[in-house]
Design a protein around this nucleic acid. Structure first.
Length: 287
DNA sequence: CATCAGGGCCCTG
DNA sequence: CAGGGCCCTGAT
């Protein structure tokens, strides 16, 4: 039996709040863009299983629903077996505590590669407050407002949809130098130069190489992508200064010894980091 | 009011 | 490989 907990999987305090979702205990409203359709989804906790209700303004064929369901399983790692990770590290001083508190939390992220790239760019070099503001403006200009179940939530635009949007227009949205990054990334997708689904089948190094080709993606953003979008856990080799401060607090290990310290978590290094992060939500309030 | 660093990245030398 | 520039915001 694979442990699973709804709330800690579908609500992560460390992910900054965007206009495409709402959470309350037992329920998550989340929009998706999947195969040319905007969807409003409600996930509900039913006896520690996930029920999914999909809203759409067109009729959805069984094939579509199947492929979307599989995608959801992938994005939220619903088939991931955590038992080995738990067995090995439930006695660890820090991670063991996190495992206890967050038992059944799956890693993963609701957004596609393209969407996550936008978020990653918007996160760069600024505080959470500003990231949220930029994301909101982008939704209001290029997203679609969906109304379902009494909620109004923004849905992402599709990759390539910014083709006719100028860098100047993006600049006017106060996203700064990131305008150029977003434009170039959108073009890259429009030109079919990257395929998220093919990339999922490649190994970590190959994925990293491909992702670093994207204009605006550097060492800090790439590991977020590798973990959240590509579900790689077997790495831990980049810590930015602000992260270092937090990690050394959480683990009581001096900054320059952190990477070595994490060797103890073997192929689960990044999963261990994730558990530790999510177990200290109070830290994020100070960022 | 002015100045400056910030949850990076790109480009240049 | 080091360091400046980038857009904006909020802290000082």
């Amino acid at each position: 039996m694979m442990p699973f907990s709804f709330d800690v999987t579908f609500h992560k305090p460390a992910h900054f709040q965007t206009g495409d979702n709402i959470w309350e205990p037992g329920t998550r409203w989340q929009t998706f863009w999947w195969q040319d359709k905007n969807l409003g989804v409600i996930f509900k906790n039913v006896d520690d299983k996930v029920s999914m209700e999909i809203f759409s303004n067109e009729k959805l064929e069984p094939d579509f629903i199947n492929s979307f369901t599989n995608e959801i399983r992938y994005r939220y790692c619903l088939d991931l077996d955590l038992s080995e990770f738990y067995q090995k590290f439930s006695k660890d001083k820090v991670v063991g505590k996190a495992i206890k508190n967050l038992l059944g939390m799956r890693p993963g992220h609701e957004n596609s590669l393209y969407e996550y790239l936008i978020i990653g760019i918007v996160l760069q070099n600024c505080t959470v407050r500003r990231s949220i503001a930029m994301m909101q403006t982008l939704f209001e200009h290029y997203g679609t407002l969906l109304e379902y179940d009494g909620k109004k939530l923004w849905s992402f635009w599709q990759p390539g949809e910014l083709r006719n949007v100028s860098v100047e227009e993006l600049r006017s949205l106060k996203i700064g130098y990131r305008a150029k990054f977003i434009k170039r990334i959108d073009d890259y997708f429009a030109d079919d130069l990257i395929d998220e689904f093919k990339l999922r089948g490649k190994d970590l190094e190959m994925q990293k190489t491909e992702l670093l080709k994207l204009y605006g993606v550097g060492p800090a953003t790439v590991w977020y992508l590798l973990f959240d979008v590509f579900h790689q856990y077997d790495f831990f080799n980049h810590i930015s200064p602000w992260e270092q401060k937090i990690y050394s607090k959480i683990f009581s290990v001096h900054g320059n010894k952190l990477i070595k310290y994490f060797d103890r978590f073997g192929k689960y290094r990044q999963l261990a980091v994730h558990y530790a992060w999510e177990n200290f939500p109070i830290i994020f309030e100070s960022l």
